[in-house]
């Protein structure tokens, strides 16, 4: 079976910012240069389906999404209008399966965070998401990014302007592990870029400043929380729709 992390090599990350692989099992960290066919050596285990498998996804007991106990069927403690559209129950990536995953790995199992997750890697911030003192991630969805940045602007940030990207991402990180209830109780939150946002209740979710609202809150991960939000925070200008859609 595959390793639980996609382990997509990221040679573009600045040297020294490469993050440690998840504890088990070890991941290949960079693209290897295989033989004439350009194939990795067969040391990698294939995703063969065992005979008799019911085809309901992975059978790896270590893989997120395959939690054995009755707790697997629980809602995982997440709440918000988007949660119903995300992996639940015993699906791979269900909230319960992520509680032992560090935030940077857990995000790979939340399918609406592909932009944010890739941005964290591009910015070399994965280690910061494993801060032993805990971290809370206010993670904008892919839709939120699409509403904020044009495709070319996003590529520019991800590839050429990583300092700006890092600042942008820090506007979505909060020191310490804070539940939705914690945030609401505090009434304000200060992100790692130094911005202080008000937190106000709205229909059992939290409004952050006047920009974003949580839409699936309280993913518990190793040492932290992930709250999905519906808009990009920070100070960068909106570029979505400004330039021509580059299209195909």
């Amino acid at each position: 079976m595959f390793a639980p992390s996609p382990a997509s090599a990221d040679p573009a990350a600045p040297p020294g910012r490469r993050t440690r692989p998840a504890p088990t099992p070890p991941h290949p960290r960079r693209v290897r240069r295989p033989g004439r066919l350009g194939l990795l050596a067969a040391t990698l285990v294939l995703a063969g389906v065992a005979a008799g498998c019911t085809g309901d996804g992975s059978a790896d007991p270590h893989e997120p999404g395959r939690t054995g106990g009755p707790a697997a069927a629980a809602t995982g403690g997440v709440s918000g209008p988007l949660c119903a559209a995300l992996p639940a129950g015993t699906d791979p990536g269900n909230p319960d399966s992520l509680v032992d995953e560090p935030a940077d790995q857990a995000m790979r199992w939340i399918p609406v965070l592909t932009t944010f997750e890739a941005a964290v890697r591009a910015a070399g911030l994965s280690a910061q998401l494993r801060d032993p003192r805990g971290v809370t991630v206010l993670a904008p969805t892919d839709d939120a990014f699409a509403r904020k940045f044009s495709a070319s602007n996003l590529d520019e940030l991800m590839i050429h302007d990583r300092d700006t990207l890092r600042t942008l991402l820090r506007a979505h990180l909060v020191a310490g592990s804070h539940s939705l209830a914690d945030l609401l109780a505090a009434g304000t939150v200060t992100t790692m870029d130094g911005t202080r946002l008000t937190v106000t209740p709205t229909e059992s979710m939290a409004r952050l400043g006047d920009t974003a609202t949580t839409i699936c809150a309280d993913y518990r991960v190793a040492g932290g929380r992930i709250h999905l939000i519906d808009a990009v925070l920070g100070t960068l200008p909106t570029t979505a729709g400004l330039d021509d859609d580059p299209a195909h």
Binding site: P6, S8, G57, G65, P92, G93, W109, P111
Partner: peptide
């Protein structure tokens, strides 16, 4: 195997 939660990596 991930029920479309993850894409196939390189």
């Amino acid at each position: 195997t991930t029920r479309a939660v993850q894409y196939t990596s390189d």
